[in-house]
């Protein structure tokens, strides 16, 4: 941060352009996902036109090989991406933060054991862990996908939480809190969690994007929510066979996923400045 920026300090930061673009992109997906609960342009399962029609005013993204409206299915895909993203981050966040805090407070050997386990888990690709979880359950469903991705994310969240919490625990204000008789749970709630939250929140947003991508990958492999759930990964897989005759089928779900992930990342960046008062004052 340069001296010039410091002299232009106005005390309060205004929401940045980054934040607004992120809000608009993610908001678009949330709006569409909510809309599809009550209304879709066409019956998602019905034959509404010819097979593999090119995009037109009637069918914005054309039709698939069964003559179903492709745009309707992409809209429904938003629902799945958001549900899986939110569910996986909730599960991964809850498990990861608890484990991370536990490790930060634990005795030397328990901490070492946890840290080593986490490092091993992180060495496995997220998708591989998710595939193992899905394979271990009887059949692939939306819930197994959420659980699988959530568990895979929890190791990453736990490691980050552990490092962040350990750094905060070394600071003077923790010693100060202890000298005034604050209990360990009190220190976690009043000091540790609020101080690691800005970094965690940004990481959660990034994990949300990763979860959406992981869900598409699982569905692409046939391990996600089974049809007729219109997951983007599943749509991509179906369109693969006709990619030369109807490229829109492979392009549109990918674009929807990119818009969501980019939007979330921008939102995360923008939000970070609000979560941390010392940072906003320095801007």
């Amino acid at each position: 941060m340069s001296a010039i920026e410091l002299t232009e300090d106005t005390g309060r930061s205004r929401p940045s352009l980054t934040l607004w673009v992120g809000v608009v992109l993610v908001g678009l997906h949330v709006f569409i996902a909510l809309l599809t609960v009550v209304w879709t342009p066409y019956d998602p399962l019905g034959m509404t036109g010819g097979r593999l029609e090119a995009p037109s005013w009637a069918h914005w993204a054309g039709t698939d090989r069964l003559g179903r409206d492709f745009f309707t299915q992409i809209m429904l895909g938003s629902q799945i991406a958001l549900v899986v993203g939110a569910g996986a981050v909730a599960i991964g966040g809850a498990i990861g933060v608890s484990l991370g805090i536990l490790a930060a407070f634990a005795s030397r050997w328990l901490d070492d054991a946890l840290a080593a386990t986490l490092d091993i888990l992180i060495a496995f690709p997220t998708l591989l862990i998710a595939m193992l979880v899905v394979a271990a359950s009887d059949e692939a469903s939306l819930f197994t996908a959420i659980l699988a991705i959530g568990l895979a994310l929890s190791a990453i969240v736990a490691r980050l939480t552990r490092i962040l919490a350990k750094r905060v625990l070394l600071l003077d204000y923790i010693t100060a809190a202890r000298t005034s008789g604050t209990s360990w749970p009190g220190i976690v709630v009043t000091h540790v969690l609020p101080n690691i939250w800005p970094t965690l929140a940004v990481n959660f947003a990034l994990q949300f994007g990763l979860a959406a991508i992981a869900e598409a990958s699982l569905s692409y492999l046939g391990l996600g929510a089974p049809p007729p759930n219109a997951s983007w990964g599943h749509l991509l897989q179906e369109a693969q066979g006709t990619v030369y005759t109807a490229p829109i089928g492979a392009f549109a779900p990918g674009l929807a996923l990119v818009i969501l992930v980019v939007g979330i990342n921008l939102l995360a960046d923008g939000l970070r400045d609000f979560a941390d008062p010392t940072r906003s004052a320095r801007r």
């Binding site: 003077d172 100060a176 809190a177 005034s180 000091h191």
Partner: peptide, 30 residues
């Protein structure tokens, strides 16, 4: 005993205060 028998003031008040809590709330805690 900490906080009832003793309380401590540290050398560097910037690091001895939680940067993310308004000072009034930090005093309210003990």
């Amino acid at each position: 005993l900490r906080g009832t028998v003793t309380a401590t003031v540290f050398q560097e008040p910037l690091t001895a205060l939680d940067p993310l809590l308004p000072v009034g709330r930090q005093i309210a805690e003990p």
